[in-house]
């Protein structure tokens, strides 16, 4: 089950921890993967590790033109077009709302929310023609719960849910699904930097008693990308160890 042979996927933010795991998991199921991100070195290392069926395209997701080029290049690389779009790229510009600058709001919205819209629009044509497609957004628990210091980030991640539900309704009868995966606390370089006491405090909020791994997220993405998930659309899968049961 959940094989993706013959399918092509574009993963944004593939140089990050979660994006990296998603790309690996899709690739392991047989998909051809186009890895996009800002850090070319990390992308090339990942592509090298994956071997065949992996390609690197760097892009600046804050920029419309760069996104258009990314979509076109990805479709050219994946001969039959991109079947699976993973809108994973995300940035933070944390700060209290009262002190948040317009630029901090805009930068986060552009990369986290608008790039997903732009890429979906660019790739939808091919998916419509093939009568098959998967759009998967990587949101966050904070999109549902909010988080002090992250008004911009939480808004962008909640926006992704509304966007995805609307798109899902528009294209459902064309064999295209659109869904969201919302991670909770995931083990990354950032959580590794916390001291013992901070770590304890973090874990107290998670019934599962551990942090999530990038692989926990990737597994949900593989499921949603698969043929078997054809009847799941407009959904949000929360992968958070029970931290918030929504």
């Amino acid at each position: 089950m959940f094989r993706l042979d013959g399918k092509s996927a574009l993963v944004t933010g593939a140089s990050g921890g979660i994006g990296n795991a998603i790309a690996k998991a899709l690739h392991a199921q047989g998909a051809e993967v186009v890895l996009s991100g800002t850090r070319e070195e990390a992308l090339q290392a990942l592509a090298g590790e994956l071997g065949a069926r992996a390609h690197v395209v760097t892009a600046n997701l804050g920029d419309a033109e760069s996104i258009a080029t990314l979509a076109k290049t990805a479709e050219d690389i994946a001969d039959g077009g991109i079947d699976i779009l993973i809108n994973n790229a995300g940035v933070t510009r944390d700060g209290l709302m009262m002190r948040m600058k317009d630029e901090d709001w805009e930068a986060v919205m552009n990369v986290n929310l608008m790039s997903g819209f732009r890429l979906s629009r660019a790739l939808m044509r091919g998916m419509m023609k093939r009568r098959w497609g998967r759009v998967i957004g990587i949101s966050s628990i904070v999109g549902a719960t909010g988080n002090p210091g992250q008004a911009n980030y939480a808004a962008s991640k909640a926006g992704m849910v509304g966007f995805t539900k609307s798109l899902a309704q528009e294209v459902a009868n064309r064999g295209i699904t659109a869904n969201v995966v919302a991670p909770g606390f995931i083990k990354t370089a950032m959580t590794d930097a916390l001291d013992e006491a901070q770590h304890e405090k973090l874990l107290a909020a998670v019934p599962a008693g551990r942090l999530g791994t990038p692989e926990d997220i990737a597994a949900s993405v593989v499921y949603l990308a698969s043929e078997e998930a054809a009847y799941v659309t407009g959904a949000t899968i929360h992968v958070n160890g029970g931290m918030a049961m929504l």
Partner: peptide, 9 residues
């Protein structure tokens, strides 16, 4: 409405 988009394509 989506059919009309597809027709134009």
């Amino acid at each position: 409405s989506l059919d009309t988009v597809e027709l134009v394509m």
